[in-house]
Write a protein that binds this DNA or RNA. Structure first.
Lengths: 212, 212
DNA sequence: GTCTATACACAGATAGAC
DNA sequence: GTCTATCTGTGTATAGAC
């Protein structure tokens, strides 16, 4: 029963149930809208028992944000390791990032929207971590521009923001029981980021169907 | 002093101060994170006086959501009225929408993120209104596809979601005191939605710098 | 139309037995 | 490690004077 040589995946520890339940509730109701009563209920324990495992409600949010941003950093590093050109690296960044965010939706959505609920010290630290991740992507985009692989008429800053726009909002409408898997959504969004939504004239007569 | 023949724009009514303050606080702290004390403080009155002007805290959120979605519907209708082709209509939809959302950031951000805090009846009504607005855009995108103006290898559903991805997330990083105006951000995002971020080979040799 | 005072529920967190 | 019981602050909302 309380033998700690559990076979893997059979039983989750109480603290893991709390963490996963917290991510789900925070995403669904927001941090302020989630009570410690709800947190304990979803973990199957009483309110008071919660404090044996975690310091408090805010600690749960802080830990969630930090670990999630570390996961993102790991994803980005893997793209840097595997990409053989700036554009391929960027493709790996985008597709692996959105796939990870959608698969681990509760934690990523919470991290993206509830940073404001952290105390100011912790908020500053978490924002710095997030900005560091964004800076990595911006670096790749800058390299791709210099290599002539990305358009140069838009500043790297806004090419970066636009990419995160395109990827991040998916977390609000993604349906795990829907018709597309996270990987497929990443593919579609990357296609649009690369070529846009407008149908280009086939390479028959002119090079591009330019407008205006 | 309490003469109600005020010249326009000199003094806002108490209920307007409450509504505007509520939008700002809801965006910054979330609905659950905003107290009636804070709402009354930002309007310059005591807590109790709040209830002379509004039914309660949730009424403020509900009214904000409904009126904001009506504003969006009006913006979309103006695009339908003014556009002379599906692609021009879509451009007007996208650029006017993002401009409106960024100029009226507090209300739009709140509507986009706090619908979950409404009671279930009101939430259903508000979501229906939102879905109706999205359906209008999807209709335009479908027409543009049929006219051969938008790529057809991605379903209209996802071309629509991708467009809203690209536009909506801007509300989280837009800085009113930043270097770009809402109109310019709309222009950049529309450029990317149309042509993508990748630099196309100039129409010299081949039609497109195709990859993979 | 605004105020002071307050009702009453519920929040996060703790004490101490088992 | 979990429980019952409880503390204390704060939440939304109301009563009633001015």
């Amino acid at each position: 029963m309380n033998d700690d040589s559990n076979p893997p995946e059979l039983a989750k520890s109480t603290v893991d149930r709390i963490r996963e339940g917290a991510a789900e509730l925070f995403r669904e109701r927001g941090y302020s809208g989630t009570t410690t009563r709800a947190l304990s209920a979803v973990a199957g324990i009483e309110k008071a028992s919660l404090y044996h495992h975690v310091g408090g409600k805010e600690d749960l949010l802080y830990e969630l944000c930090v670990t999630t941003l570390e996961d993102v950093a790991t994803v980005f590093q893997s793209a840097l390791d595997d990409g053989t050109s700036p554009i391929e690296t960027l493709e790996l960044v985008a597709r692996r990032y959105v796939e990870r965010a959608l698969v681990d939706r509760d934690r990523h959505a919470t991290m993206l929207t509830e940073i404001r609920s952290l105390s100011s010290d912790r908020r500053a630290e978490v924002i710095a971590r997030r900005d560091q991740n964004v800076a990595v992507v911006r670096g790749v985009i800058g390299q791709a521009q210099e290599a002539g692989l990305l358009r140069a008429d838009i500043d790297a800053k806004y090419l970066t923001l636009a990419l995160f726009n395109l990827l991040n909002w998916s977390i609000f409408w993604f349906d795990p029981s829907g018709d597309l898997e996270p990987k497929e959504i990443g593919q579609i969004l990357w296609m649009i980021y690369v070529d846009g939504a407008v149908l280009k004239a086939p390479p028959a007569r002119k090079g591009r169907g330019s407008r205006a």
